[in-house]
Design a protein around this nucleic acid. Structure first.
Lengths: 105, 105
DNA sequence: ATCACCTGCAACTCGATAGTTGCATAGCAT
DNA sequence: ATGCTATGCAACTATCGAGTTGCAGGTGAT
């Protein structure tokens, strides 16, 4: 995956409310309505957040009868982390190389 | 570090312009003015972005005479990646445990 | 000393988005 | 069939943030 698709994931993860939703989902799959009972925001707001999270693949909708439960995809977070780590290491490598050139080694 | 400090980092990384700034800095430290010559935004906009990035520790200001150059701290990105990976793995672990209980194993 | 250049601060515009309320729709249960 | 509950869609508000212009203050060089 390219960094172009990486940025929206970070944008999605850059919101406290979404993390509280993810934290709640960490205790088991839940629907927007169920989450709304535990969080201080309305169901519609949560539904929007879930849509954002689903869009970037951090969360996955699962139909159960008439309700739609959401599941956290921790593997996606780890995959994103792996890409970020690669970027960080690459930058370290390049700057180290530049530093060496600057020092005339 | 807690996830409370993690969120602002993701918010900072959830912007394309900031990534273009980071990419430019990857070719060597540079000041806001220098970056403004290479990017399609004004110096002040870049200065704001650099302030955001510095605030979360992704970038570091270095005074060189009358100018302020910025350096990317790739290690910070890797550290953030490590924390995100830990969160992702923890979620996978918890959901796997819940699944086992649900299946009566 | 003066000029050129870089940084810093403030005020403003504007688009995106978090959040709300209201209503319509659809599926389960009795 | 009817009522309860869940989702979906739409319109609206308000706040936040990205970007701009303008100007003041500092620091280096000649």
């Amino acid at each position: 995956m390219s960094t172009a698709t990486l940025v929206p994931v970070f944008a999605a993860l850059g919101d406290e409310t979404r993390w509280s939703i993810l934290a709640a989902l960490g205790e088991g799959d839940a629907s927007a309505s169920a989450l709304a009972e535990r969080l201080p925001v309305t169901r519609q707001a949560i539904a929007k957040h879930l849509a954002v999270l689903a869009e970037v693949g951090v969360v996955e909708p699962v139909r159960v009868g008439r309700e739609v439960r959401y599941r956290v995809l921790g593997s996606e977070l780890s995959a994103t982390a792996a890409r970020l780590d690669a970027v960080g290491r690459e930058w370290e490598r390049r700057l180290a190389a530049i530093k060496e050139i600057a020092e005339g080694l």
